[in-house]
């Protein structure tokens, strides 16, 4: 946040300006800088470019495609003023405490249920902690407390372990009774 006024423009004004972002399928998105900055990756690019930032020629995103970026932008728009997420864990079990999601967030994930992994990949690349952690939590919901058969079906997992490997796993982890 130290170099927010890199362009000699104060931060609130800069946030209102538009920037063009180009995804890997050559689609151009015109986005308010304040929204694009929810992504730390984009924020870093804007800061690195500093003076030389040409708002109209755009920022290329070689690892994200248009349809996914559209969904990500929807999240960024909603979360542009959101505080940093707090990651907490239970001191005894050391399990991560689950985030409580807002109505909007629940609805968002309901809408894009079939794109969770694309969202996770994009959020990881774009460094959007809220989207990344929440998507991972959504995916973990499909594991938590379920039976092995349900998990296998849910993720379409092929059992590629040999009998020897399975025996070895059972030997080193006595709790793995499945």
């Amino acid at each position: 946040m130290a170099t927010e006024s890199a362009n000699g423009v104060s931060s609130p004004e800069l946030n209102e300006r538009d920037v063009v972002i180009t995804t890997n399928d050559n689609r151009n998105f015109t986005v308010k800088i304040g929204v694009a900055r929810v992504s730390k990756t984009i924020n870093n690019m804007i800061q690195d470019l500093g003076e030389s930032l040409d708002l109209s020629s755009g920022i290329p995103l070689p690892n994200v495609d248009g349809p996914i970026f559209e969904k990500v932008l929807e999240w960024c728009e909603e979360h542009k003023n959101a505080p940093e997420i707090k990651v907490e864990q239970d001191p005894h079990t050391r399990e991560r405490k689950w985030f409580t999601m807002t109505e909007w967030e629940e609805e968002y994930f309901r809408k894009f249920l079939s794109h969770l992994w694309d969202l996770a990949m994009a959020a990881n690349y774009l460094e959007i902690p809220s989207l990344y952690y929440y998507t991972c939590q959504k995916l973990a919901e499909r594991i938590k407390g379920r039976t092995p058969e349900q998990i296998r079906e849910m993720f379409g997992i092929e059992d590629d372990l040999t009998e020897e490997e399975k025996a070895e796993i059972r030997r080193t982890n006595v709790w793995c009774t499945y």
Binding site: K166, N173, T177
Partner: peptide, 20 residues
Amino acid sequence: ERIFTNVSRDDLDLCTRMCR
């Protein structure tokens, strides 16, 4: 790994034998 941070150790005991 990030996804697995959300589940309990009991769940991990199951997952570890799912695939390589």
